[in-house]
């Protein structure tokens, strides 16, 4: 280091010079340092001080308001339009003012009261010094020599052969524990419906044909324990009561399809509610155009044509549930769905 040595203990050295020297030793040169208000006590300076003070006081006032509101403002649920609906907005406003006050105070202080400075820091150019590199490289390469693996092929083989299964041991319990066979039991191919299972409403009550309006649709579930819950999330079904001419068209399409043959009952047809694209309930029924729209990605299915997709990203028709009416006059499934319901997957043929 050239030049006069900086004497830290020299009593003539000012604090700023200490700061500057400290920065210098850290590779930073303070090239410009100028107080905002070289003459203290000017009106302009006092004005800025007052602004900053006001900001902090505003923050304090708003914080107090927040505390008061938090403790005493009514918040328990009450229907309609009342003060409880303002609890969260009041908290938000007071907290926002508090934080904004602190923010403005600090930033105005930094921008207008703190001295203006320009500092320059040196960057490292290139990598570490060449001698450091050489030393580190030598240390690293030496590890290989020290372990002498090149000269001990038996060790080399043993380490690799031994550690490989150990690596698997770390991973396998987590994966193995989580792993669950989707085909045993084969939930993907079965729903809650089976021969004779009744179609029921959400409240588990069975349905007669005269309980569904012409031109209407009803969401139905399998009449088994838990059939209406998420335990059977693949089972929700839409039961349609079509008008005569529409039912005739639907029957023509159904009977022309080897899978859907004889699945309708009179003017009633039942399709899976679970969209074959991504699994949302495809339940927007346009009664006059007989289109079923799924709200998630806008797939549209034609109810009078085996629910085949006519728009959107879905590629497979909604499966039809074969239905009939049992001895007591209630709707029942003739069998489970004949194809897997819901979105496609690799092994779905």
């Amino acid at each position: 280091m050239t030049g006069t040595r900086f004497d830290v203990d020299d009593p003539a050295v000012t604090r700023f010079e200490l700061v500057r020297e400290g920065a210098r030793r850290d590779g930073v040169e303070i090239v410009h340092y100028e107080p905002r208000f070289p003459i203290p006590g000017t009106k302009a300076e006092r004005r800025v001080e007052r602004t900053v003070a006001m900001m902090f006081l505003l923050a304090g006032g708003a914080a107090t308001a927040f505390l008061v509101a938090y403790i005493w403002w009514p918040y328990q649920y009450e229907a309609g339009a009342n003060l409880t609906k303002l609890y969260t907005p009041v908290l938000g406003l007071t907290l926002a003012l508090t934080l904004a006050g602190i923010s403005f105070g600090v930033i105005i202080w930094a921008k207008r009261l703190l001295p203006h400075e320009v500092a320059v820091e040196k960057r490292h150019v290139g990598g570490s010094p060449a001698d450091e590199r050489k030393l580190t490289a030598a240390s690293l390469v030496n590890i290989v020599d020290e372990t002498d693996v090149a000269r001990r092929p038996l060790l080399k083989f043993a380490v690799v052969a031994g550690l490989l299964p150990v690596g698997a041991v770390a991973v396998v319990p987590l994966v193995g524990g989580l792993l669950k066979n989707p085909h045993n039991p084969d939930a993907l191919l079965h729903t809650g419906f089976a021969p004779g299972v009744r179609l029921v409403r959400k409240d588990m009550s069975p349905i007669r044909p005269e309980d569904v309006s012409v031109g209407g649709v009803e969401t139905v579930f399998p009449g088994i324990p838990g059939g209406t819950t998420n335990e059977y999330a693949d089972s929700p079904t839409l039961l349609f009561h079509l008008r005569d001419e529409d039912a005739a068209a639907a029957a023509r399409s159904a009977n022309a399809d080897p899978v859907n043959k004889d699945s309708m009952y009179l003017n009633f047809v039942a399709y899976s509610k679970i969209c074959t694209h991504a699994g949302c309930p495809a339940s927007l029924y346009e009664q006059q155009t007989h289109k079923l729209l799924c709200p998630c990605h806008q797939s549209q299915f034609k109810v009078t044509e085996n629910a085949r997709p006519v728009f959107g990203p879905a590629t497979r028709p909604l499966p039809m549930l074969p239905i009939t009416v049992d001895a007591d006059g209630f709707f029942a499934a003739k069998s489970d769905y004949k194809v897997p319901i819901g979105p496609g997957f690799w092994e779905r043929s």
């Binding site: 309980d211 569904v212 309006s213 031109g215 209407g216 029924y285 346009e286 009664q287 006059q288």
Partner: peptide, 13 residues
């Protein structure tokens, strides 16, 4: 009555 595209939700349903 199920106007236009809306399905019919008669009193039976």
């Amino acid at each position: 009555t199920g106007p236009q595209s809306m399905p019919v939700f008669g009193d039976n349903q």
